[in-house]
Nucleic acid binder design. Structure first.
Lengths: 149, 149
DNA sequence: CTTGAAAATAGACACCA
DNA sequence: TGGTGTCTATTTTCAAG
């Protein structure tokens, strides 16, 4: 865990909403010079607080109009098999392993009901699945340090 | 939906893994000149395919060692109330509205079991909840256009 | 879309508070 | 740690082919 002050927290919040803000621009917003901001960001990266920068893509704009979540109940022995399977299915963009009955939670972005059906059928070979359509994904919030809350 | 070729798809994949790649660097990887890459990215942004750029943060490094998902069953009438509640709880970083029994799926990053308990108790005022701990979140995969699959 | 040049900007460094 | 000033590297934008 990293020792954070409120300036670091502000920088993290800003970079989570716009990962392309320059050090100079960040400095303007948190009242710090560009080199000071650069140094802080470098420290946050080195410490593993910032793990990377990613572009966000709208799946629907790529024709992936169906967003679903699948819960899978499987056995402990099948976990490696399951992970290999998820890896091969490009429509599965997110995988959580959960407590409970050896459960996985998967995000699926599919281009058609037929594609979704195929994914569900494939995953269901490993155990019982529960599939729900995502009617709406609300904009994610920034992860903030506990002090801020 | 946006008309995409394989170069656009490659650019999207690269930017999803590193949102700070420069146009020149992207051009080197997809064999395109830097201005051509800039133009394509601009088009993808204008078309809403690229919705933004975000820094990824490791919640554990901020002391948020507990990652849980909460499913909530509530009534249709309480949906606005629920959304307002989720908005106020900083530990809830992600909200999906699901089909099925008026259900929400929430991601929670909490600093302690006590904090998680408080979140669960708060959310549970709206209806029955199921809470699971996330033992492991696998690295998300890039969203890719159907042609690539 | 490419090349080439110009203008703008960002990031890195040294030095001082 | 942070601020200022500067220098360099890099980026983006624009013109022309």
């Amino acid at each position: 865990m990293h020792s954070m002050d409120s300036t670091d927290a502000a920088l993290l919040a800003l970079l989570q909403s716009d990962g392309r803000l320059s050090a100079a621009e960040l400095g303007r917003r948190v009242n710090l010079s560009q080199p000071a901001v650069s140094a802080r960001i470098h420290r946050l990266e080195q410490a593993g607080v910032i793990t990377g920068y990613r572009a966000s893509v709208d799946p629907a704009k790529l024709g992936l109009n169906i967003h679903a979540v699948i819960r899978l109940r499987t056995t402990h022995a099948q976990i490696p098999t399951a992970l290999a399977m998820f890896d091969k299915l490009a429509e599965i963009t997110n995988t959580y392993r959960l407590t409970g009955e050896d459960c996985f939670l998967l995000d699926v972005h599919a281009g058609s009901a037929e594609r979704l059906e195929r994914i569900v059928d494939t995953v269901a070979r490993l155990g019982p699945v529960t599939t729900s359509l995502v009617l709406r994904a609300y904009p994610p919030k920034a992860v903030t340090s506990p002090q801020q809350q």
